[in-house]
Amino acid sequence: MSANHDDHHDAPDGHGRALRLGIGGPVGSGKTALTAALCRSLGPSLRLGVVTNDIYTTEDADFLRRAGVIDPDRILAVQTGCCPHTAIRDDIAANIDAVETLEERFGPLDLVIVESGGDNLTATFSRGLADRQIFVLDVSGGDKVPRKGGPGVTSADLLVVNKTDLAPMVGADLTVMSRDAAAVREGKPVLFTSIREDKGAHSVAEWVSGLVESWRHQHSHSHLS
């Protein structure tokens, strides 16, 4: 048998594939709402795919399908066996499989969003799965959360603080959150949103557009592997 089969590398070197954007954060902070908002804002200009990591059943995937912001076939749901952080950090095989399935079926794509299951402040995406990641908090968790830090808050490429419309009701001081976040994140960006009021999360969408643009610029010209 000949050994001159394709020398196929699965290493995530980024060439010839979509940008993979992880969206993580605690339960109820608005990850699915943000994913829907990004689909709404970016869908007209970018070729999208979405992978959800539902804790139970296909709740998040169903929400996105019902929202009608993206072709339902372009949403794949991954089950995580009680451990949402394992599926995005320690054993990313099922998520990589879902991302590559979307790229094979609908590719080329510009952006694949991987939404994690709701978890705690220590959850972050493996670099083997997500090229960039957004961590989503909401003001009702308390304005101390950014100060408490944790890998998600401190190291995510973008921190989104959602539900700003609730701040007066829960006594959250956005100035404090902004100051603390800036301190623990060493200058990495923070955006405040109220996705209930801004259905397209336009400031976040603009940030993501910039990412996709530079990703395309960096990875479309050569094929190193």
């Binding site: 066996g81 320690d90 054993d91």
Partner: peptide, 11 residues
């Protein structure tokens, strides 16, 4: 069980 091959999500 830490082998990153997706086994953790099967019961």
């Amino acid at each position: 069980s830490r082998l990153p091959a997706g086994g953790h999500a099967h019961s």
